[in-house]
Amino acid sequence: MVGLSNLLSIGQAAFYGIGAYVTALALKTLGLSFFPSVILAIVITLLFAIIVGYISLKMEGDYFILATLGIQIIVFTILNNWIAVTMGPYGIPGIPSPKLFGYIEIKGIESFLMVSTAFSAITIFFFHRLIKSPFGRDLKGLRDDSISMIALGKNITKLKIQSFVISSSFAAISGFIYASYISYIDPTSYNLDESIFIISAVLIGGTGNIKGPIIGAIFVVALPELLRFVGLPDSIAANMRMIIYGLTLVIIMRYRSQGLAGVYKF
């Protein structure tokens, strides 16, 4: 989505976090089962994205990036301080496993692997159709030449809000899987570092297609494992990891600004 609409959001972890917290509350406090929880997580994140989108997308380019940074900080602060609901820095422990139709408990690594695979497949299918559709064409057009789009009568603010809301809502699904799998969440998983991690994956892999971000994600996830394999102690590996992300980003932006497998250059 970043690549398609040229909207670089550094608040992606905020939406991921809202999805995770809504999931936690839905499962634990409301005692909802699998599908109602996912739907609630998506709907609440979507509503939040619409509000954020309307406010921040009236701004152009760099201002939009700053606005999403602001959102990121606001959401983190709320998660960290609204103790009555989020339990603040202590986080929410003991999130029950979601139950499919109220009966089948989704628990353990195999079940979650199946759930994440199913959601990934749905997401890839959804974005594949979207990219190939007239809507995807409009987003590419927006990325190429916004002046031309306006001259062709396209409401580009609406297009930007739509693409922002769609990509933010999908972050809620990741939030759902994370919260229900780990069964404990706290605000530090949804801070600026996490957003930067997500952007690194996207920029390193490349944007404008589906395989770019997937390759990027494999890279940023595999890197710590690789460092461990090489035999670096964890304390050094954590710092090494950040340095290597940084270096890779700089090198890729310098020599291959479309990312490893993407279409668009930054």
Binding site: R137, D138, K140, D144, D145, S148, G208
Partner: peptide, 16 residues
């Protein structure tokens, strides 16, 4: 002001 990453055909039908 054409769209460089779209095809010739897409550049025309995007008018819809």
């Amino acid at each position: 002001h054409i769209f460089p990453t779209l095809t010739v055909l897409e550049n025309l039908i995007i008018a819809d």
